[in-house]
C-alpha cells in the first residue's frame, strides 16, 4: 500500500477511536463500579477541582456497572443508558434491592456485563440456530451444507473431532453440546468486548469463575458416572500396593493434594480467561489513550499499535474460548480414565 493510502486508512480507523475516547472522557464522572461507588464518588470530587481533570478511562471499561453506552449521532457520540435506578443527577444504582437467601445476600440487578452476556447468548443462539436451519435445508437439498453453514459446520466439527472426541475419550459425544456451547458462548462474549460500546463480560472474574465452576461440576459428575465407586479414589489416596502404615501416611499426605488439584484446574481456567481478556483491553485502552496524549504526528505510532493489538485481541478471543474448551475436555478425559 502506498504512503497516502496508509495515512488515509489511519485517519479512517482513528474515527472510532476518537469516539471511544470522547465517550470515555464524558462518561468518566458518571461511571462508578458496582463495588466501590462510594469510594469513586469521593475521588471524583477533588479531581474536578484541580486544573487538569483526572479521568480514568480504563477502570470503567473493564469493570462492571449499572450504566451502558449506546451509539449516538451527536458528540461525544455516546449516550448513557442506565439499566438500574437513577440516583441523583448522574449516578446509576441497582434496579432491585438485594435478595437475601439464608446467609447470603445476592444483588440480582442486571448490570452491564449481564446485558453483554445476554447479548452474547442471543447472538450465539441466533447465529447457530439460523445456521443449523440452513444446514438442515442444504443437507436435504444438496446432501451437504453450503456457504456460511459449511464454514460453521467446519468449526463445530473441528471442536468435536479434534478437541472433544480425542480428549474426552470414548462416548464423548454426550459432552459435545456442553463443550460446544462453552466455546461459542465464550467466543461471542469475548468478541462483543472488542466492538465499540461493548463490554467484555469474560473479563469479569465472576463470569469466568462461574464458567470454571460449571466446568468443575461437569468434570466431577463425568468422573462419578464413568468410575462409579472408583470415583472416591480420585478424592482419597488409598494405595493398596503399600503396607498399611505407609498407606495411612500417604493417605494423609496425598489426599489434600488430590483435593487441591481438583480445584486448581478450574481456578487456572477462570484466571486465564479473565486475565487474558482484561489485560488485552487494558493494553488497547492504554494505546488509545496514548494517541490523544501524543497527538499528530507521533500519535500515529500508538494508533498503529492499537490496531495491531486489536487484531491480536480478535485472535486471543478465539484462542481463549478454544483453550477453555480444550482444557475442559482434557479435564473430563483425565477424570474419566483416572485410576489410582
Amino acid at each position: 500500500m502506498t504512503r497516502p493510502g496508509t495515512l488515509l486508512l489511519a485517519l479512517v480507523l482513528s474515527l472510532p477511536a476518537t469516539t471511544l475516547a470522547a465517550q470515555d472522557h464524558a462518561s468518566a464522572p458518571v461511571t462508578t463500579s458496582a463495588t466501590d461507588s462510594g469510594a469513586a464518588q469521593g475521588e471524583h470530587a477533588p479531581a474536578a477541582d484541580s486544573a487538569v481533570a483526572k479521568v480514568d478511562i480504563i477502570t470503567p471499561h473493564i469493570t462492571d456497572g449499572y450504566a451502558m453506552e449506546l451509539p449516538y449521532w451527536k458528540p461525544p457520540f455516546a449516550k448513557h443508558v442506565c439499566i438500574g435506578r437513577h440516583i441523583g443527577e448522574h449516578e446509576c444504582g441497582p434496579l432491585w434491592d438485594p435478595v437475601r437467601i439464608g446467609p447470603v445476600t445476592l444483588q440480582l440487578s442486571p448490570t452491564k456485563h449481564v446485558v453483554m452476556l445476554i447479548l452474547a447468548a442471543s447472538l450465539a443462539a441466533i447465529v447457530l440456530i439460523g445456521t443449523a436451519r440452513a444446514h438442515t435445508r442444504h443437507t436435504h437439498a444438496a446432501g451437504r451444507p453450503q456457504g456460511f453453514a459449511a464454514g460453521l459446520e467446519a468449526m463445530v466439527l473441528y471442536i468435536r473431532n479434534v478437541v472433544i472426541m480425542p480428549n474426552v475419550g470414548p462416548h464423548g459425544e454426550g459432552y459435545a453440546p456442553y463443550l460446544l456451547t462453552v466455546f461459542f458462548f465464550l467466543l461471542f462474549a469475548n468478541l462483543l468486548g472488542l466492538i465499540p460500546y461493548g463490554a467484555t463480560a469474560t473479563g469479569n472474574i465472576s463470569v469466568t469463575a462461574t464458567m470454571a465452576i460449571l466446568s468443575l461440576m461437569v468434570t466431577e459428575i463425568s468422573g462419578m458416572r464413568a468410575l462409579g465407586k472408583g470415583y472416591w479414589n480420585t478424592v482419597f489416596y488409598w494405595n493398596r500396593d503399600m503396607v498399611l502404615p505407609m498407606r495411612i501416611v500417604m493417605f494423609l499426605v496425598m489426599s489434600p493434594v488430590e483435593i487441591i488439584s481438583k480445584f486448581t484446574k478450574p481456578f487456572a481456567l477462570a484466571i486465564r480467561l479473565f486475565a487474558n481478556m482484561t489485560a488485552g483491553h487494558i493494553v488497547v485502552l492504554a494505546f488509545i489513550g496514548l494517541i490523544f496524549a501524543f497527538k499528530l504526528p507521533v500519535g500515529i505510532a500508538p494508533l498503529l499499535m492499537a490496531i495491531a493489538i486489536m487484531l491480536l485481541e480478535i485472535f486471543v478471543s478465539f484462542l481463549q474460548a478454544f483453550i477453555f474448551t480444550l482444557l475442559t475436555s482434557v479435564f473430563i478425559g483425565q477424570m474419566r480414565v483416572a485410576h489410582h
Binding site: L106, L117, A121, A132, P177, Y178, S206, V207, T210
Partner: peptide
C-alpha cells in the same frame, strides 16, 4: 459478585438447552 455469577449460570444453562436442542 454473586448476582453476576447467578446470571451467568442462568444465561449459560438457557443457552446450553436452546443450543443443544435447536442447533447442535
Amino acid at each position: 459478585s454473586g448476582g453476576l455469577m447467578f446470571w451467568t449460570i442462568v444465561i449459560f444453562v438457557l443457552l446450553l438447552i436452546v443450543l443443544s436442542r435447536f442447533a447442535f
